[in-house]
């Protein structure tokens, strides 16, 4: 992924900024030009909560370029209180402890590197909740 393309998404992938539609009140992520529910285009920023619930997961054994050395790694869909869902990686988790419904929390991690000389790409991933503080 090119540098500008990585950099452009820092608000969404690191600061976890979603959109809240001012017309219907629903939240959408990734952001869109118009609301997928009502077509509205007047939004405010909605920061995705720290904690959510894993509603499905998969363990990747065959990775694409950039992830070859990280297998097996876990990806999942996380659902938040208001029903918003996002896809991400689940990290620091034992494959055996994974289960649908488990609580997870945001954690800032490396996702991949553009080779040894390119930029390091960071994003929020999720991990099993460490402490309920």
């Amino acid at each position: 992924m090119s540098v500008p393309r990585y950099w452009r998404c820092i608000p969404q992938r690191i600061k976890m900024e979603a959109l809240k539609c001012k017309s219907c009140g629903k939240t959408i992520y990734p952001p869109r030009a118009r609301c997928i529910y009502c077509g509205g285009n007047d939004f405010e920023t909605y920061v995705i909560p720290e904690k959510g619930r894993l509603i499905s997961f998969s363990i990747i054994r065959h990775a694409p370029i950039g992830f070859e050395h990280t297998t097996p790694y876990v990806v999942g869909i996380v659902e938040f209180e208001n029903g918003l869902r996002i896809s991400s990686q689940i990290t620091d988790v034992d494959i055996n402890e994974l289960k649908i419904g488990m609580e997870v929390e945001q954690v800032f991690r490396k996702v991949t590197e553009d080779g040894k000389s390119g930029i390091i790409q960071y994003a929020i991933k999720f991990r099993p909740i460490f402490q309920n503080i």
Partner: peptide
């Protein structure tokens, strides 16, 4: 450190804890 951790990720997590 895990495969997806480095000084930046460790620093961010410590920083978030200090902000709390």
């Amino acid at each position: 450190a895990g495969i997806d951790e480095d000084v930046a990720t460790i620093a961010v997590e410590a920083a978030k804890n200090s902000l709390k």
